Simulated assay, not measured.
Amino acid sequence: MHLSTPFTLLLIYLLVNVVVYCVYWWDKQAAIEGAWRVRESTLLWLAIAGGSLGALTAQQVLRHKTRKEPFRSILMTIGVLHVGLGIVWITAPNFVVEALSRMKASI
């Protein structure tokens, strides 16, 4: 069975977000138990790296870092940015492909 590239990318995206959700769950459990915590910068980098859906979902479902500023605002900004990029990708896929090839060519 041959998987199409968009389908494969969707699976990778979902997997990344499940992993990020699990990291947020782990950090929430550590907070409850007074154990070693995941750095806020690491949590935000995981969101930037494509896990914003998992991070925002975990934040709401687990009630984790919902009052912590500026963490909350930064995470929301990352989520909005990812939604915007997703809309651009869906509505103008050629633009995204051309932009990525230009970036690759300049490296």
Rank of each mutant, 00 (worst) to 15 (best):
L3M: 14
L3S: 11
P6S: 07
L9Q: 05
L11H: 00
Y13K: 06
L15Y: 07
L15K: 03
N17P: 07
V18L: 13
V18W: 03
Y21I: 06
Y24T: 01
W26Q: 13
D27M: 04
K28G: 02
I32V: 15
E33P: 07
G34F: 11
G34K: 09
E40I: 00
S41Y: 05
S41T: 12
T42R: 05
L44P: 01
W45H: 09
L46Q: 00
A47T: 02
A47R: 00
I48T: 02
I48S: 01
A49C: 14
G51I: 09
L53H: 09
A55C: 01
Q60A: 14
R63K: 14
R63A: 12
H64Y: 08
K65R: 10
T66R: 13
T66Q: 10
R67Y: 11
R67V: 13
E69L: 12
R72F: 13
T77D: 01
I78C: 02
I78K: 01
G79R: 05
V80L: 15
V80C: 08
V80T: 08
V83G: 07
V83H: 05
L85N: 02
I87Q: 05
I90T: 10
I90K: 03
T91I: 09
P93N: 14
V97S: 14
A99M: 11
A99D: 02
L100F: 15
L100W: 14
M103S: 11
